[in-house]
Design a protein around this nucleic acid. Structure first.
Length: 562
RNA sequence: AAACCUGUGAUGUAAUGGUUAGCAUACAAGACUUUGACUCUUGUUGUAUAGGUUCAAAUCCUGUCAGGUUUACCA
């Protein structure tokens, strides 16, 4: 358990420094604050991993807070999905919080700011305000309403709250600095009128606080010590601190701790998109079957695809935390799931592209039960696999003739059938078009796997997986390829990401699997030997097996072959 | 020619002024193999750039270059 002196990432260093300079470890508290307006994706797992990981490391509480300040976009469906995903990843939150729970405190503080002349009601159109805002190089112009009296502001704000105005008529703004080089400090909006039902507060409110006003103060109310977010919020930090420092003056006895916002770079994955808006488009246009389509980079998609929580957490751990822009190679994610499943998934045999193989010297009505090891990495026992005269093997595993680099079945050469016998290719039968319909071979009865005979110890270069024709069970297998053909589909200025959709991202195959698989359960994962890792899809029933290909095995032969 | 942030192999990250710049992935070669998997061994590529400080710089300073962020009644 010796904490290897693992290097600290920059956030952990900040925390260590804070502790060194007097912060109490018991005051450490973190939060993961999603807006419930979509499903969580692999990018979110980084933020989740950082905050919950810190919670685990420092034994500090982590809140799951829904940043639900925009009733127009948020729904209970997303709240439920987010909770499910975070739990599935294996994290436990201390409190389930909602920004909407703080609407009253936020309102009271806003009134206080108005009374102190730090906020005012603006009554212009959003276009007029945008124009006055200036640009990063030119300072802005004050609103004609900037100097309304406190009394007038109070009256208007109260009426806003009471629903006496329509959407867009008035907003509340913080009075900060229209000349600040930081655009966010040029009198940012604190409240807007939105006459929409909220998924939690119903119609109680018609004014809703904006992100900047809400987020930091929610952190403050929850006494979050370190508020960690992604880099694009860096410019918000000044505003975060401005609001926080004012509110602190009003409430420091109740809430003595000042939260600290720090930013890290978000995760990008090659060959995928991460924007909620774009993912939504894939769902709405039916490009995928839903948020949990196994090709989606959503957590629910990865779950259905067969990824394990451990593999995702290991992935995030390996990716690390920094402030640079990055694009992580999906190969790393694939490596992590292979690493996990190599150790933990039982091995079975399945043939995806079958061709018939007849062992001509094997008795017609003979059947054998062979013993197959479940997982050489684990002591996972063994199972029985039926063997008979007629089998199926992969079409790719036979060629009439081939060069020395081809380790599979050819005419006149020997290979081993996994867990069974050594066979020798004899002849093959073709149809009118020249397609092979049947391969004939002979077997060496003394070469049975595990029999210990000299013949069984003979080295042959190739080993093939197979299923017995009579005993094979049909199964639907869904084979996935990446959704996009481009490494960074949404990074092109002149092209829409939809142009890079891979038309062959889903292939549905009628496969034949070994009979032990009939009783497999939804979610169960296997290695189909020599092919890859597969799980049982949600669509599977007791009559109809459905598998998803999670990821292929590393395939050096495919590379040689290219 | 605004402010702020960031530049370490193909990718991600470590080295916190002090041995031949480490680790993982990827790639390549080999060993092993009843999975062309796994495992094992070995190898290839790196401190953006120019100066400066220092006995010593990836690390500190300055300039340059490159990339990113910010101009929503979204979060």
């Amino acid at each position: 358990m010796s904490e290897e002196k693992k290097p600290l990432n920059f956030i952990e260093q900040i925390i260590e420094e804070d502790i060194a300079s007097g912060m109490k470890r018991e005051d450490l508290r973190f939060r993961f604050p999603p807006e419930p307006n979509g499903y969580l994706h692999i990018g979110h797992t980084k933020a989740i991993g950082i905050s919950f990981g810190l919670g685990e490391k420092y034994n500090a509480p982590v809140n799951l807070r829904f940043d639900d300040t925009n009733p127009a976009k948020e729904e209970q469906e997303y709240v439920d999905a987010i909770k499910k995903d975070v739990s599935w990843l294996g994290y436990q939150w201390e409190n389930e919080c909602y920004s909407s729970d703080y609407f009253q405190e936020l309102y009271d503080w806003a009134v206080r700011l108005i009374k102190e002349g730090k906020a005012y009601v603006d009554s212009q159109t959003s276009e007029a305000m945008a124009e006055q805002k200036g640009t990063p190089t030119e300072s802005g112009v004050a609103s004609p309403y900037r100097d309304r009296t406190v009394e007038e502001n109070l009256e208007l704000f109260t009426k806003m709250k009471n629903g006496e105005f329509e959407e867009g008529e008035h907003v509340l703004r913080a009075k900060i600095d229209m000349a600040s080089p930081n655009m966010l400090l040029r009198d940012p909006l604190m409240y807007r009128i939105l006459k929409k039902a909220h998924h939690r507060t119903g119609n109680d409110w018609v004014i809703y606080p904006m992100y900047d006003w809400t987020h930091g103060e929610s952190d403050y109310l929850e006494q979050i010590s370190h508020s960690l977010c992604s880099l694009e919020f860096k410019p918000h930090r000044d505003l975060y601190n401005w609001f926080r420092d004012h509110v602190y003056e009003y409430s420091k006895t109740d809430y003595p701790l000042l939260p600290k916002q720090r930013e890290f770079s978000r995760l990008n994955l090659s060959y995928t998109i991460m924007s909620k808006r774009k993912l939504l488009k894939l769902v709405e246009q039916g490009v995928v079957s839903g948020w949990d389509d196994p090709r989606m980079p959503t957590i629910s998609g990865l779950r259905r695809r067969g990824y394990t929580p451990a593999s995702i957490r290991n992935f995030i751990e390996t990716v690390g935390v920094s402030k640079r822009e990055n694009i992580i190679d999906v190969a790393l994610l694939e490596f992590k799931i292979r690493e996990d499943l190599n150790k933990n998934a039982n091995r079975v045999m399945a043939v995806l592209n079958p061709v018939k193989l007849v062992i001509t010297n094997y008795p017609e009505d003979k059947e054998e039960i062979l013993i197959a090891e479940n997982n050489p990495e684990l002591d996972a026992g063994s199972r029985e696999v039926p063997f008979s005269r007629e089998l199926y093997i992969e079409r790719e595993d036979f060629k009439e003739e081939a060069n020395r680099k081809y380790f599979r079945l050819t005419l006149g050469k020997e290979v081993r059938l996994k867990n069974a016998y050594i066979i020798k290719g004899e002849t093959c039968i073709k149809d009118e078009e020249g397609t092979i319909t049947e391969i004939h071979c002979t077997y060496d009865p003394l070469s049975k796997s595990g029999s210990g005979t000299e013949e069984s110890k003979r080295k042959v270069k190739g080993t093939l997986h197979w299923v017995s024709k009579k005993h094979a069970v049909p199964a639907e297998v869904r084979v996935y390829d990446r959704l996009f053909s481009d490494e960074a589909p949404d990074a092109h200025k002149d092209k829409d990401f939809m142009e890079f959709l891979n038309p062959d991202s889903l292939q549905t195959i009628n496969a034949l699997v070994e009979p032990s698989l009939v009783n497999s359960k939804v979610g169960e994962r296997f290695q189909f030997q020599r092919l890859g890792y597969f799980n049982v899809d949600d669509d599977a029933t007791s009559e109809h097996l459905v598998f998803n290909k999670i990821v292929g095995l590393r395939d050096t032969w495919a590379k040689v072959n290219k």
